[in-house]
Design a protein around this nucleic acid. Structure first.
Lengths: 177, 177
DNA sequence: TGCTAATGAGATGTAAAAAG
DNA sequence: CTTTTTACATCTCATTAGCA
């Protein structure tokens, strides 16, 4: 079976990635990470045995096994993600799935995005806007200086900063009244 | 020989289990357990379509392997369960069945949940409500009492509660100044 | 090259299974 | 039934690697 979603461009690779949290394989890596400087670059071993045992003629069309699949999240998707994040940064499984449907990504991708975003927030990282502050993206959008959230109007951005970046905004000297 | 890691509390037993559970046979079973729709939960927790689309051919390979199906109990279901539990922690079979009907789980699942919850309560781990009722996690982490967000320092948690849960916090008597 | 999506190890919680 | 163990799901944290 091609293992390709009929509704969206989900490949076998992506589905496989959803399992990666559970694959605690190997004594080898455990021992290694515990006892050695961990500098040895173990080459992300593809499960050839597993893939090899299904009918290979059906599958081969489209994956590069040696490469890690990196999803490109579009600004439109980011906008939705940040909006949902602002409502709940730790969504339950069901909510996560609904978000995934909304933005057209797999649940795993959305889950990872939330994990990474929580980590980013925890570390106090915010995306400094760099040169050309709060530049517009696409169509009249304002980007939050502390994260990538996009807003159509300044009042919405202000409200966002008030609610989401209270401390940082104060530190940075924004006057949010 | 029961080797124990000298640098961390990893025992031989744990390592052995990890190996035997995950190294050889488990990509198939993992895939299946993660991707196969839960039949008893299909109404409340429908899996997304792309996840459920594995061919039956892939499924029945290694059919005998240990794949225990783990039900994911949603927060909504937990709320009902805890509420019923507070009324009677040892319900009769009939009551158990009515609860099962209410929450949309099998009687067996509800029964196991009550057993485990009684055991947890006996061990002093009882929580009157689902995860979200303030308890600490890890070493330096504080969990928000109103959602699952984690914070390293109290000030960050306070800022979070101020921005996200001001109403609830006020009601609950938190002093956020 | 910087940002960030993805990966992996380790920790935690708990549903399910096994043992008693 | 209770107690204990196993297995799975998800989190954090640290890293790795892909793409504009």
């Amino acid at each position: 079976s091609p293992a390709l979603c009929s509704l969206c461009p989900v490949s076998f690779i992506q589905i496989k990635n959803t399992l990666s949290d559970h694959s605690n394989n190997s004594l080898t890596s455990l021992t290694q990470s515990s006892l050695t400087p961990l500098k040895q670059n173990s080459k992300l071993m593809p499960e050839t045995s597993f893939e090899g045992q299904r009918s290979s003629r059906e599958v081969d069309e489209e994956h590069r096994r040696d490469k890690r699949q990196r999803t490109t999240i579009t600004p439109e998707q980011l906008e939705v993600l940040y909006q949902r994040y602002s409502l709940d940064s730790n969504p339950t499984r069901g909510v996560l799935e609904s978000i995934a449907r909304d933005v057209g990504l797999t649940r795993r991708v959305v889950q990872v995005w939330f994990q990474n975003t929580r980590a980013r927030e925890r570390k106090g990282q915010f995306r400094s806007m760099g040169p050309g502050s709060s530049f517009s993206l696409g169509f009249n959008h304002l980007r939050c200086p502390f994260c990538r959230a996009l807003f159509k109007v300044k009042s919405a951005l202000d409200a966002h900063m008030r609610s989401r970046h209270w401390a940082e905004a104060e530190r940075a000297g924004y006057n949010l009244s």
